[in-house]
Write a protein that binds this DNA or RNA. Sequence first.
DNA 1: TCTGGGGTCCTAGGACCC
DNA 2: TCTGGGGTCCTAGGACCC
Length: 405
Amino acid sequence: MKVERCILHIDVNNAFLSWTAIDMLKHGSELDIRTIPAVIGGDETRRAGIVLAKSQKAKEFGIVTGEPLFQARKKCPSVQTFPSNYLLYKSYSNQLYQLFLEYTDKIERFSIDECFLDMTNHRMGRDIMEIAKEINYRVKNELGFTVNIGIAPNKLLAKMASDFSKPDKIHTLYYDEIEKKMWPLPIKELFMLGRKTVPKLYHMKIQTIGDLAKTDEKLLIHKFGKYGRMIWEYANGIDNSEVNEKEELPKGVGNSTTLPVDIADEEKLEEVLLALTEQVTYRLRKYDMLATVVNVQLKTKDFVSYSHQKKLYQATANTTEIYEVAKELFLQMYKKEPIRLVGVRVDGLVKKDEVQLSFFADPASKKNEKIDQVVDDLKKKFGYRAVTRASSSDLVKKAQKNRIE
DNA sequence: TCTGGGGTCCTAGGACCC
DNA sequence: TCTGGGGTCCTAGGACCC
């Protein structure tokens, strides 16, 4: 007989805002920004001014994640904005993970502020609700912020449960609760149903998760393929995926940046491309990995995106080699129009020591590798920005702040 | 003052081979 | 000489997530 699994999904409430708030308090601030209308936002001077996280008070004014800051200010003129701090968030995320390790080693880090815990064989005879309450209490007291916890027999249901009502809440979603707790919800609440599919389902007279659950599975597969099967299963609470505790290697690494102003100057754009390539390859080398695919993305002033990619003959992490390909791709597709965003990413990553080196390796690449290594060492010593070839490109300098790990 | 930046996975079409 | 079907690789784009 199969044992029913016991999964927790734990989600930090207003993570970025909470973490910035307690960091400010720690550094002597009198104000807890969780108690006022406040948001964590991007840099407006760089045209990246959107809401990344909001306080409960800001939410009450109708401010939503992802909207431009000026729009948030229209809703609430007194709203205060604070910059995000990736390194700080990473550190709180790690502290949270360490606390969870006291309960189980079967933990999947789903994002910087979310984890799945498989408690199936780690309950020590205790009631799961009692354990959840203890975790909730300990996070609040030891780390200073609140979490939502969902308890369910699989990951999908646990994730749905943790989302029910916030903040600082624990919800269960067992199979016999699906009909009452999940089916009445509008379809947009279902994990993996986004802004493109929801209108299509409305068109099919499917409005609630329950409607979707009761729709003929075959019809959904016919219309949406594999994805159709998945959303039907999700609506019915079916999810057999395991909590994956292994830290997975990245499959791709990319950096992109919205330019402070639209640029049509080819040379300037190439400068940006080089700066981005340097960041990407630097991160790639830190992983001890090589890339087999290079991808360049452009976004025009009208928000039209397009991209080109190219598979390489030989896997590499070398700045010069990858930049040459990136530049080639850029020149291939650039149509001389004003550009808003430039992105470089590498894909098809392989571990450096698992790669077969070509007999005919270009002797120049050995030399290039040496250069990379010297530059990387300097960066580690004196900070990322101490040494960059694209140093003349102020355009990306600001974007680099706080982002390089 | 319109609308970030980091990812993963899937699909569809063309090239090429047998 | 107008005709096929399967399989793989590559590329472009689009969906979703946080």
